[in-house]
């Protein structure tokens, strides 16, 4: 127990160091850094404008109103931003694998997956984070307790999202290059996460909780912010934990193929 605690502390120290280096790297081009953040916020705002116009006309879809959209947008954008900013390489893991760049992480004394996904930061993720928090504050659901639940919800949702990206990109170990497929799956999860969950029933809803776990990025953490129930918290925690466990297993299996040299075109 003491050993695993100290090992966790070591990995956290390492993570903070790599995040610091990422931030320093992004700051090297401070104008581009700020432009990316502002650009992403503007991009999100334009996208959201559609829902503002929609709800002005229809007011509600199956009990889902504009304030719910603000909240779900807040949670999803923040979770997406956290993943992009802190684990940016999860978005391009396919290329890292296909181009043999895992060699570098394998030659270092740190956990390969953790090192590989945290070694790059996408600066625009900060724009998503700021936009997401603003959206939450404007949703009308703000309370101090709610803010705490928002933070917990975002941590679990970004874990689920990062795990989903890792699983999708790890298919490269078997398919050669799964970048396009992973992008497709990522767009699917984002699109469905931002739709009112009340629109879906039966098999479609089941799909959004399992194969394309969009609900874990949108409606479930949003429900948690609205109200703390064990069903919301437990469901989100369990979903994130299962996805993370699956991501680690899939990546490890893939890594065995990589280490065999047959997964990629190796330099002899």
């Amino acid at each position: 127990m003491e050993g695993s605690k100290s090992s966790m502390r070591r990995e956290l120290k390492f993570l903070f160091a790599i995040w610091k280096a990422n931030l320093q790297s992004a700051m090297e081009y401070h104008i581009a850094f700020i432009a990316q953040i502002l650009g992403m916020m503007l991009n999100n705002a334009f996208y959201f404008l559609f829902w503002v116009i929609f709800f002005e006309r229809f007011k509600e879809i199956r009990g889902w109103g504009l304030n719910d959209m603000f909240l779900v947008f807040g949670v999803t954008a923040t979770s997406f931003g956290v993943t992009a900013f802190l684990f940016g390489n999860a978005f391009s893991l396919s290329d890292v694998i296909a181009q043999g760049r895992l060699d570098y992480y394998l030659s270092m004394p740190r956990p390969v997956l953790l090192h590989a996904v945290s070694a790059r930061s996408i600066p625009s993720g900060m724009g998503d984070i700021i936009y997401g928090i603003t959206s939450y504050l404007l949703s009308g659901y703000f309370s101090w307790g709610g803010l705490g639940r928002f933070v917990v919800g975002v941590i679990l949702a970004s874990t689920a999202f990062a795990a989903f990206l890792i699983i999708a990109h790890s298919l490269t170990f078997w398919l050669g290059n799964a970048a396009a497929l992973a992008r497709l799956l990522m767009n699917a999860i984002l699109t469905f996460a931002l739709y009112p969950i009340t629109l879906f029933n039966g098999p479609a809803k089941f799909l959004l909780f399992t194969i394309v776990p969009a609900a874990l990025m949108g409606s479930v953490p949003a429900s948690l912010v609205r109200e703390l129930t064990w069903q919301n918290l437990g469901g989100l925690f369990l979903g994130a934990a299962v996805l993370l466990g699956l991501a680690i297993v899939v990546f490890r299996l893939g890594l065995r193929r990589y280490e065999s040299g047959s997964a990629i075109q190796v330099e002899v």
């Binding site: 390492f14 160091a17 790599i18 790297s25 060699d103 570098y104 030659s107 004394p109 740190r110």
Partner: peptide
């Protein structure tokens, strides 16, 4: 390890920052 065709220094940062990061990596 040094792989001549695979740089390990962070491209946008001064080398001293990578040195310090390596210090953390190697504890």
């Amino acid at each position: 390890t040094v792989f001549g065709q695979r740089p390990q220094l962070w491209y946008h940062l001064p080398a001293i920052d990578t040195f310090q990061l390596f210090g953390k990596i190697y504890e």
